[in-house]
Design a protein around this nucleic acid. Structure first.
Lengths: 242, 242
DNA sequence: TGAAGCTTTGTTGTACACAACATGGCAAAA
DNA sequence: TTTTGCCATGTTGTGTACAACAAAGCTTCA
């Protein structure tokens, strides 16, 4: 289950720890566990409706229920799980209305992100994105839903790194994490390859804007991608009948 | 210390509980305590730098440290307090850079709020705002910083109620709460009356736009008020030398 | 006198036992 | 057979003792 997500997590951590350097060991451990469970939810290792056992998770991570519960509380505040007294803690199912709200908001936030003090990507950052294009190319040859999901998330965090406004970045991340799993759930298998191809062309387009340092355009392009992906999502939802 | 804030709290609760009806008694209690402490921080009953004793607060609210700690964790996630192991939990001091970031974001959010599915105020809602204009009028005659702060917060929550997009509303509230106490701290006493007067004219302006149902204009007006208040804040900060 | 190390004190973080709660199953009565 | 009430079981929420930790004061030695 856990597999090789360590690399991904640590990479994402760096983007987060930039803001606040002072992290005690307890907080680092909590952050690690939080990221792990969050990824499991977003990458559909835990499906909406699944119950997360506090006791089992506490045992798995070698801690007691108390600190684990604070991790779950954080996930609950972000809307990824919902605890019910005497029943259990469950991965949330987002209804269509909320999904639409989140998408509408994400569309607006993307445009703002390009305007509000964007952080210019270093050459190393650009290279990381170029490497993702290669990864996407491999996935076009050999489509795999989970690998695509992980690549997509990695690229998103790379994008979030350009947002200089700390709060806007946090909000953008939270909204993204709320929609990821829904996108994966609804995306039909037979459209997977086409989606990966489209994803590759999208991150190429974004890369080009970043290469010339035009971050306002990055914001607009990003916005258009989110908007179009939402329209496709609706179309897919109509296809499958949900 | 607690005084007559019950009315304010409950009124704010109604705006919150609209979204999710299912609230267990524990959650309601936690929400109440959270709101109480949050107000104390925002209205400067607790000044930045103050230590919040878990034990004392737990005793005051008649609960043990465990549920109180989850309330403090929530406040910490919103950036209002910061816990340090073995030292204490302290009300945060926002530096100028972060304050500027938050204001820039609030300016953008206000404009979006007017566009993204705003909720038309009922006649009762408009009447509540009209009552606030009266309260503001009284305060012009007899300026009082804390009363002004409370009125300002009440009006803000009334404004937040027009935001139909649930996540956007939450974010807007969080950003507002981060700036309130800074505004109060920096505002010089001798400009208080002028500020109250300006506040009254602002909420009148907003009311007019709401009365004709033009909520996009409400967003633009709100945006301009936030922007101008930020500029005055900077001017005041220059005056007092901070 | 000064400084380093130890001790004391008070605080937040953790572990664990128990309370509160919801749910499903079972039995008994209509 | 159906329904109603009760109980058993398992889960989240709470209280409490203790561990981890930091800071201030004290002591002791140079």
């Amino acid at each position: 289950m856990a597999l090789c997500k360590k690399g991904n997590n640590s990479r994402r951590q760096t983007a987060k720890t930039m803001a606040r350097q002072k992290k005690t060991k307890s907080q680092q451990r909590a952050d690690r566990i939080y990221g792990e469970i969050r990824d499991r939810i977003c990458l559909l290792d835990y499906v909406p409706g699944d119950r997360l056992s506090e006791e089992e998770l506490a045992e798995e991570f070698g801690i007691s229920r108390t600190p684990l519960r604070s991790v779950l509380a954080r996930l609950e505040s972000e809307g990824l799980v919902k605890s019910r007294h005497g029943v259990g803690t469950f991965v949330t199912k987002t209804n269509f209305e909320e999904l639409e709200e989140v998408y509408k908001l994400r569309i607006e936030l993307a445009e703002i992100a390009g305007r509000l003090d964007p952080i210019t990507k270093s050459e190393a950052g650009l290279n990381r994105i170029r490497a993702m294009i290669v990864r996407a190319g491999d996935l076009v040859e050999q489509p795999d839903q989970k690998a695509f999901a992980r690549l997509s998330l990695d690229h998103f965090f790379e994008m979030a790194g350009i947002i200089g406004n700390a709060h806007l970045r946090d909000i953008t991340i939270r909204m993204q994490l709320l929609t990821t799993r829904n996108w994966l759930t609804i995306l039909p298998e037979r459209h997977l390859q086409a989606e990966i191809r489209r994803f590759r062309s999208e991150i190429r387009e974004l890369l080009q804007a970043m290469e010339v340092g035009d971050y306002q355009s990055v914001g607009h392009i990003w916005r258009s991608h989110i908007s179009m992906s939402y329209h496709r999502l609706k179309a897919y939802a109509g296809e499958t009948g949900t």
